[in-house]
Computed example of a mutant assay.
Amino acid sequence: MLRAAAGRRIALLAAVPGGDGSFAGLQRVLLKPDGTKADIEPVKASLGVIAGGAARL
C-alpha cells in the first residue's frame, strides 16, 4: 500500500494488461508539481498483478 506521506499527491497512473488484454494491475509513480519523480519513498507502487506485464504509455 502506498503510504509515502499524508495528503494528496500528483501521480502518473498506468494500466498493466494481462496476457489476454484484460486489466491486470496498476503502476503508480508519485510526481512533483514540475513532473519529475517525487523525493519521497516509495516513489513507485503497484496494485494487482504486474509481473510479466508492460505499462504502455
Score class of each variant (00 low, 15 high):
45 A>M: 04
56 R>Q: 14
20 D>C: 09
26 L>T: 13
31 L>P: 01
18 G>Y: 03
15 A>Q: 11
1 M>T: 11
57 L>W: 09
14 A>H: 00
37 K>Y: 11
17 P>G: 08
9 R>K: 15
29 V>C: 04
10 I>W: 08
16 V>M: 10
10 I>H: 06
23 F>R: 03
4 A>R: 10
20 D>T: 12
44 K>Q: 12
20 D>R: 13
2 L>S: 13
2 L>F: 06
57 L>R: 09
31 L>M: 09
14 A>M: 10
28 R>G: 04
41 E>P: 00
17 P>V: 07
24 A>C: 04
32 K>G: 01
24 A>S: 15
25 G>N: 06
52 G>R: 07
38 A>N: 10
34 D>G: 04
39 D>Y: 01
5 A>F: 01
42 P>K: 05
50 I>S: 12
4 A>S: 13
26 L>W: 05
42 P>W: 02
30 L>I: 02
15 A>F: 03
30 L>K: 02
46 S>E: 10
51 A>F: 03
21 G>L: 10
35 G>P: 03
11 A>H: 02
2 L>Y: 04
55 A>D: 07
45 A>L: 02
34 D>V: 05
38 A>R: 07
20 D>K: 11
34 D>H: 03
19 G>V: 01
36 T>F: 04
49 V>D: 14
18 G>F: 02
41 E>Q: 13
24 A>W: 00
8 R>H: 07
1 M>W: 01
56 R>S: 12
29 V>M: 06
24 A>Y: 00
32 K>Y: 00
